[in-house]
Design a protein around this nucleic acid. Structure first.
Ligand SMILES: Nc1ccn([C@H]2C[C@H](O)[C@@H](COP(=O)(O)OP(=O)(O)OP(=O)(O)O)O2)c(=O)n1
Ligand SMILES: [Mg+2]
Ligand SMILES: [Mg+2]
Length: 788
DNA sequence: TGCAGAGCTATA
DNA sequence: CTATAGCTC
């Protein structure tokens, strides 16, 4: 119940970017260092500071010039500027290298940021304890280890003399020993120092990791929690560092974590909500069930740049220029990601902000990612900007641009092995014990034996050829070495040498990840399988695919279908969870919160009942609220098409029971089973329904359901490379028979998406300039056939 | 002039 | 195959 059986570790690199720079330039060794990005204005912004510099008072967010003032001997390392923007590649790669070392100790590793990762070493510890005929630890085994509220030697001594000194502490102590080994290995393999926290859960491991930085590790025994909490500001707990944490402190009139324990679960649930309340109640007692998930690769890849103040982009050519730069970075990173991780992003989000009299309005739009081709990404992004931004005096006044891609799907589908895996997992699942266990995120499923089968994964080949040299449509800006200064007023790039443009096909000439997997690797996997059965999985090597799944004593999620997870999640969060509250509205956006809540308390007259959920919704917000249901249905209707290993998961995770603060409770509840028929009312096209049902059924029972999802590109491939044509009336094109269902689904999604945007535009009149998206719709679709 | 440039999760 | 807020590094 207190969940003290796990041994969870958080490893965090010490002043990471500084260490990276220090290793690259040994003359920096031992000196005070800070890493800045963009040197031109006031010495650049500091994003990392090493310990010698910290002791001189230098901090993150200072300007380089100011750091020089208080620490004249400081060495400022600069983040590389590539294509006019900061390029963080070397730090990402350094972080990756560290993660690979960590991975050799356990597959139960969750990368939490560029420089930290959680490890669940419970099994490693248990195994070590069993192996050790001598279950005693001596101080020399954990020379760099602190124990909260103990002298380390006393802690070990207690373990020796007092058998009732709980077993969980024995596990923590051995965990400490293993973490000493882990950190040593990291240093030997990478040259970087790190610190670690060792506790029974993620929140506490993270918390104590920072207590004895740098280059030290800290154990937190469960019984030390009250002492630690006593004078610990609430904001030190991860996810309580912002608005929610402040609201919490204010609402309860407390400031230290220790005070939180005075409140009953009921009270907390009442003041916050069920999810937050329960979480807080547990955290106050040092309990956190959030499992360590196994994820090594990021779920999104993005890049962005600000254009503050006078540097804002006014002319369309400027916007285009920067979108080209961003798209180029994205394209390169995606290409590399595809080769390394055997996956393709399917979604792109274009974000931007505009200065609109004094204030900044930011917005983003999602699009299907059509291609990894840079000009194409840039062009699609530009179209979004044109469509959804509003000009003032013919000026865009863009202060921020960002492109991010995600929704990765694995490239090849080796049916035999994944099926095998699935079965194994089910077997295992039946044995499974209880709640809090390791979970596996779906994203990191590995590549397997198959070498690229027929199903047309080599789409990218076409794209590469296409992007190769001359680009038929709207390809420019990138290749001419134009007068840079017209593109941006950013001082930075004026002092950078204008890099020549490089296209990714130059860099990855033969591209394509046709990397066959060696037989030996497969054999290795199978071997690990055996080990898994005998409970020895923790010794398994680095990226053993199967190893992961067997290592956890329980797992979840892999076998449960996405759609089920979605609805469970949803029920919990929004439907059943609220049925005992009175009316009035909960809500929305932090900015308007105060006004809103006051309004809501007094008035009910401005509300309508939402037909989808029966809640009372402010009329002014109904449209937006409906968008939500719309999106939800969209997701539900399509979730079945996804490989269970990809995409969303339900979570108890920490980062975010936040968002709202003091809540006003919501009315009712009542059921609503995101029924598809409701969704139909929106589409007005009953033929679509059949597709939805059909797809659901198909994917339930047949492997094709999984296979179908693969190539998006295929949906738009041309008649000439189609073997079994099937005519699509929607777009007047022949489509590969096997892909027809998926193709239809694509049109469905496209329509929904378009309608979504239309709805929004009509409502936010500010954003509707002249063109009506509805008129645009046809051209939107035809766009997909424009490429040759 | 200007806290940059990421990345993840929860919510409507 | 949504848009945005919030949190963190
Ligand atoms: N607002 C931030 C915070 C961090 N980072 C980068 C620079 C850091 O070097 C790296 C890791 O962040 P940490 O918070 O772990 O800080 P450090 O590793 O620099 O120092 P510490 O020794 O305290 O972990 O991420 C960043 O770019 N912007
Ligand atoms: Mg760090
Ligand atoms: Mg960190």
């Amino acid at each position: 119940m207190t969940d003290t059986d796990r041994v969870v570790v958080l490893v965090d690199m010490d002043c990471f970017y500084c260490q990276v720079e220090e290793k690259l330039d040994p003359t920096l060794e031992g000196k005070p260092i800070a890493v800045v990005q963009y040197n031109a204005w006031r010495g650049g912004g500091i994003i990392a500071v090493n310990y010698p510099a910290r002791s001189r008072g230098v901090t993150r967010h200072m300007r380089g010039d100011d750091a020089k003032k208080i620490c004249p001997e400081i060495m400022l390392a600069r983040v590389p500027n590539v294509r006019g923007k900061a390029d963080l590649t070397k730090y990402r790669e350094a972080g990756q290298k560290v993660a690979e070392v960590l991975q050799t100790f356990t597959p139960l590793l969750e990368r939490a940021s560029v420089d930290e990762a959680y490890l669940d070493i419970t099994n490693v510890v248990k195994k070590r304890i069993m192996e050790n005929s001598e279950p005693l630890l001596t101080i020399d085994k954990i020379p760099n280890t602190y124990v909260v509220n103990y002298d380390t030697a006393d802690f070990l001594h207690n373990l020796k003399i007092d058998s009732s000194f709980c077993h969980s502490n024995q596990q923590l102590a051995f965990g400490g020993m293993i973490v000493e080994e882990i950190r040593k290995e990291v240093f030997e393999k990478t040259g970087y120092q790190c610190s670690a926290g060792i506790a029974h859960n993620k929140i506490l491991a993270k918390l104590v990791c920072g207590l004895n930085k740098p280059n030290k590790q800290t154990i937190l025994p469960h019984e030390s929690v009250p002492t630690l909490y006593k004078d610990l500001p609430i904001k030190k707990i991860k996810s309580l560092g912002g608005k929610f944490g402040n609201a919490l402190a204010e609402e309860l009139n407390i400031s230290m974590m220790g005070e939180l324990i005075k409140f009953s679960e009921k009270e907390l649930i009442k003041k916050f909500d069920a999810k937050n309340g329960k979480w807080l109640y547990n955290i106050a007692r040092g309990i956190d069930f959030d499992p360590v998930t196994t994820r090594l690769t990021s779920k999104s890849i993005g890049c962005c740049k600000r254009f503050p103040g006078n540097n804002c982009l006014r002319r369309p050519e400027q916007v285009e220029h920067w979108l080209n730069e961003l798209a180029m970075e994205i394209s390169e990173r995606l290409e590399k990601d595809m080769q390394e991780n055997k996956r393709k992003a399917k979604q792109m989000v274009v974000s931007f902000a505009q200065a609109v009299n004094e204030t900044e309005r930011s917005s983003s739009r999602t699009q299907t990612l059509n291609s990894y081709n840079q000009p194409r990404i840039a062009k699609d992004s530009m179209e979004i900007i044109k469509k959804y931004s509003k000009k003032v005096n013919d000026c865009y006044n863009i202060t921020f641009l960002g492109i991010s891609v995600g929704n990765f799907q694995e490239i090849e589908n080796s049916k035999s092995i994944s099926t095998f895996f699935k079965n194994m997992n089910e077997t295992k699942k039946s044995k499974c014990t209880t709640e809090t266990e390791k979970t596996i995120e779906k994203n990191d499923s590995p590549s397997t034996s198959k070498i690229l089968d027929d199903s047309g994964n080599d789409k990218v080949d076409d794209e590469k050829q296409n992007s190769g040299y001359t680009e038929p449509d709207g390809f420019d800006k990138g290749d001419d070495v134009e007068n840079l200064s017209i593109y941006s007023a950013t001082t930075e790039e004026l002092d950078e040498d204008p890099k020549e443009y490089i296209y990714y096909e130059d860099i990855f000439p033969e591209s394509l990840c046709k990397k066959p997997v060696e037989n030996s690797q497969i054999e290795g996997e199978l071997k690990i399988l055996q080990l898994g059965k005998t409970n020895e999985t923790d010794i398994c090597r680095p990226s053993s695919f199967f190893g992961k799944y067997f290592d956890s004593t329980t797992d979840e999620s892999i076998t449960s279908s996405s759609s089920i997870e979605v609805s469970e999640n949803h029920e919990k969060n929004t439907i059943h969870g609220e049925h005992n509250f009175s009316l009035s509205d909960d809500i929305p956006f932090a900015d308007e919160e105060k006004n809103k809540t006051h309004e809501d308390e007094k008035i009910c007259i401005d509300k309508e009942i939402c037909l989808d959920c029966n809640k009372q919704i402010l009329v002014s917000e109904m449209a937006e609220h409906q968008d939500y249901h719309f999106a939800l249905k969209l997701v539900r209707s399509e979730a079945h098409l996804y490989n269970p290993q990809m995409s969303h998961k339900s979570s108890d995770s920490a980062v975010s029971r936040n968002n709202k603060k003091s809540q006003i409770k919501k009315n009712n509840g009542n059921t609503q089973k995101g029924s598809i028929s409701k969704f139909l009312q929106h589409t007005n096209d009953s033929s679509l329904i059949k597709n939805v049902y059909f797809q659901q059924e198909a994917s339930k029972q047949s492997p094709q359901g999984i296979k179908r999802k693969t190539s998006d590109r295929k949906l738009v491939s041309l008649p000439n490379d189609i073997e079994n044509p099937e005519f699509c009336q929607e777009c007047n094109t022949n489509v590969e028979f096997e892909d027809k269902v998926s193709h239809d689904d694509y049109h469905l999604a496209k329509k929904l998406h378009a309608e979504l945007n239309t709805t929004k535009l009509n409502r936010n009149q500010e954003k509707v300039s002249t063109e009506l998206p509805k008129n645009k719709k046809p051209s939107d679709i035809s766009m997909y056939f424009r490429r040759k």
